[in-house]
Structures are given as structure tokens and as C-alpha cells.
Amino acid sequence: MAKSVVQEFTKGLWAEIPPFRLVLGLCPILAVTKSVENGFGMGMATTFVLVCSNVLISLLRNVIPKKVRIACFIVVIATFVTVVELLMQAFLYPLFLKLGIFIPLIVVNCIVLGRAEAFAAKNGTVASLADGLGMGIGYTLALSLLAAFREILGSGTFTLPLVSTVIPVFPSSYQPFTFMIEAPGAFVGLGLMLCMMNMLGKK
């Protein structure tokens, strides 16, 4: 039973939203979600890589021999990641400075390789494009949501992505809950979100 393209797209947004349902790609989600801007930027970079690698791998899926498929996938993914890194340096340098090492680390993000292996290598190009786009947008949403949660509590602000406008959410008398923007705060925030997702899913 083949799912429709729309279903392939929408499953990434809710039913299989990467960090919460698949619990993949947690390293960047814990590390970069200190501000909404960083989370969103990281999500967009990952989306780009996911879409491009999914499309290319599904196009080449009959050319790649089974035995060396992982090596070929990694080469494809690493190429796109480096392209993103260079483009980000050229056009969004301040964001590049903030994300730093986590951009090259998209190569080892489980979501990208996972989707290539589990989906793009077995399905057609259009379905793979929809899958990559859905997963990427789902990932971006998840990162932005967790980042908003942490940033609002941890620094009392909300940074608009891409334009870097900082909007104060609380008055200046607000004593920031700095725990939230430290690494342990990311675990707690992610745990709470997983918990909420499970409660919502249960009905």
C-alpha cells in the first residue's frame, strides 16, 4: 500500500516528527536551541541537506551498489553539508559564527542518514522530496519550539529568526531562569516536550 505524496509530507510534521517521535538528531537539538534564531537556522540548514540528499539518493538508488551504499550516502550528505556551510559563511555570517561546529556536524545527524537509508533508497524521487521536506520542516518546528521555550524562560527574550530582532517577552525586572539555557535545561525541556507529545498522542 503506497502512501500518497501528501501523506509522506505531513507525516514528518506530526506523526513522525523527528526529535519527538523518532527521537533522532538530539545532539544539535540540545546544543543549539539557546535562542530561537539559532534553532531556526539550524533547522533550515538541516532541511536543505535533507531535501537535497533525499532527492539525489533516490535518483541514484539503482546505481549505488548495496555493499557501499552507506559510504555513497555519506559522500552525498557531506557534500551538501559543506555547501551549506560555505553558503552560510557567505550570506549569513553572524549565524554561522553562532552555530559554529554544529553545521559540519549535520553530516553525522542521524535524521539525514536515517531518511536516506530508510526512505530515499527505497522510494521514488517525488515521495523522497516530500519526505525530506516534511521531516526537515518538522525538525525546524521542533527546534524552534524548544528554543522558544528555553529562550523565553532562560533569557526572557524572543529572537526573530533571520532578522535577529530581539523582542523582550518579560519586563527587565525579570530574573532569568538561566538553568534553561544551560545544557541540563535542554534535557529537561526536551523531556517535558516528549512527555507532552506522548500525552497528546494518547488521547
Binding site: I64, P65, A71, V75, V76
Partner: peptide, 10 residues
């Protein structure tokens, strides 16, 4: 063949 494919990709 495996060598050629990987080399080509790279």
C-alpha cells in the same frame, strides 16, 4: 565496480 562507484562519487 564498488571501487569505481565510490571513486566516482567522491
Amino acid at each position: 565496480k564498488l571501487f569505481v562507484v565510490v571513486a566516482l562519487f567522491s
